[in-house]
Design a protein around this nucleic acid. Structure first.
Lengths: 251, 251
DNA sequence: GTTTGGGACTGATCCACATCAGTCAGCGTC
DNA sequence: GACGCTGACTGATGTGGATCAGTCCCAAAC
């Protein structure tokens, strides 16, 4: 269950613990509390929603494998994808804290999760307040991503937005060892990307072609290849600082 | 310092305590810890930034009076206002948790705040974990607003977006007693609104005229008047549930 | 072995909103 | 009383991206 890393530090192998550990150096006792949260392992199949908009007192989940997305539906049937989730991310944390879900969550691939009940989470905070700080950190990081997303949709053109989107996803995947500056595997369809960055699927296609023809990125057959990472990052005005928190910042 | 409300419940008079109290019923001891956070009272003049994008280890503030906004600048000089803050809101909470500010904060009017140091906040969490839960709740509520904002910019037309924006602001102000279904005072210029909802100032003007001519809202001389609240809410597809958490939900 | 369906991709057309280039009223200032 | 500034407001023109209406390819279904 645990693996020993350098200098005797005990680091839990689960992706969430790894992520939280980047912010607070969690003690063995705290890791045990965290471990106890991983109660029930469940799997969901692609396309079948875990959480529905408006649902009350839903459990949260920690994503172990696969991709998911959180989205909101408008009354006219349009949808806006708020964010994609990759392994190590919380699903529906906000739903638990606010006691009602303001969004839906759909698995994009088949996924594995562990279920976390709200009550267990709040109890864990009482036992180990530093865990609360760590979870607040995750929530803040998620918020920072949503804010960046907002800026993109509000102020960037379609191509810059796409470039930024692909870069951010790459940076997040790199943090969990699922990608690097060369590229990454990506199960998203052009329709999903369209719903995420506020374009039509048709235009997503055109923009992807444009970026490809300019030799910056290629997205083809489920794989993103950075043909010229630096030029792309320059083009997109991409700033990683809000993502790559490295090393425990709170002793 | 404290005021006694019905049934002997002690409710702190400060707006933050009132907001947090809506989520967790805070004990007297917890309120005292919260009170100790209000260390230094400061004032800032309109237009002079409190926090700059990129600044490290900034303090957070709790807004006591006046209006502020948090925004991000793009390299090409455009800006996107992420949110407006009204009394009772945190300023720069995310900056403290993430140890670096990903956005700037500007007072729109002269403002009064109290400064909160990150270390004090984290200490307070250790002393009273329920306070941590409460702060996580505030952060989640802010995130929900940003998400709603994202959906608006991504998927709603200019008029719906404007209508939704004015309604949300109204709902938030109502919660702190600064507005009702009839309207509210609002110190925002059309330029500020434009930067917030991702339009040009010119178009903001046109959309406001349109909404006025349709008898839904009037925004004139620093005052928003809801001429027909229900029709406006219907038009904007406005859903308050993510804002109006009423009564302590966590015992 | 034909059908069905989903995803990538394209050209033509349309329109919502941006941009440009102003006017006008109010207000502080020297 | 002229000057400058800021915010509200407007008409003309331009454009980025949506929408419509398809094609092509491939894999699964029957």
């Amino acid at each position: 269950m645990f693996s020993i890393l350098r200098k005797g530090t005990i680091i839990e192998t689960r992706p969430l613990a790894r992520k939280l550990g980047a912010f607070v150096a969690l003690s063995e006792a705290e890791l045990l509390v965290l471990e106890r949260l991983h109660k029930r392992r469940r799997t969901f199949v692609a396309g079948c929603d875990l959480v529905h908009q408006g649902q009350a007192d839903q459990a949260a989940y920690i994503l172990l494998s696969g991709w998911a997305c959180s989205y909101k539906l408008l009354h006219d049937g349009q949808r806006q994808i708020v964010d994609f989730q990759i392994p190590g991310d919380f699903l529906g944390l906000r739903s638990v804290v606010l006691h009602v879900s303001d969004h839906s969550i759909e698995p994009i691939t088949d996924i594995e999760v562990t279920e976390v009940h709200g009550s267990d989470l709040f109890e864990a905070f009482t036992e180990t307040p530093r865990l609360a700080t760590a979870v607040l950190w995750t929530a803040s990081r998620d918020e920072a991503m949503v804010v960046e997303h907002l800026v993109g949709i509000g102020r960037r053109g379609a191509a810059e937005r796409m470039a930024h989107f692909l870069l951010e996803l790459g940076a997040r995947l790199s943090l969990v060892g699922m990608g690097d500056e060369g590229g990454y595997d990506c199960p998203l369809t052009q329709y999903l990307i369209a719903d995420a960055i506020g374009l039509s699927a048709v235009h997503v296609n055109r923009v992807l072609r444009q970026l490809r023809e300019q030799g910056m990125v290629t997205f083809r057959e489920g794989h993103v290849t950075f043909d010229n990472y630096d030029r792309l990052a320059e083009f997109a005005d991409f700033e990683v600082s809000y993502l790559d928190q490295i090393g425990p910042l709170l002793k």
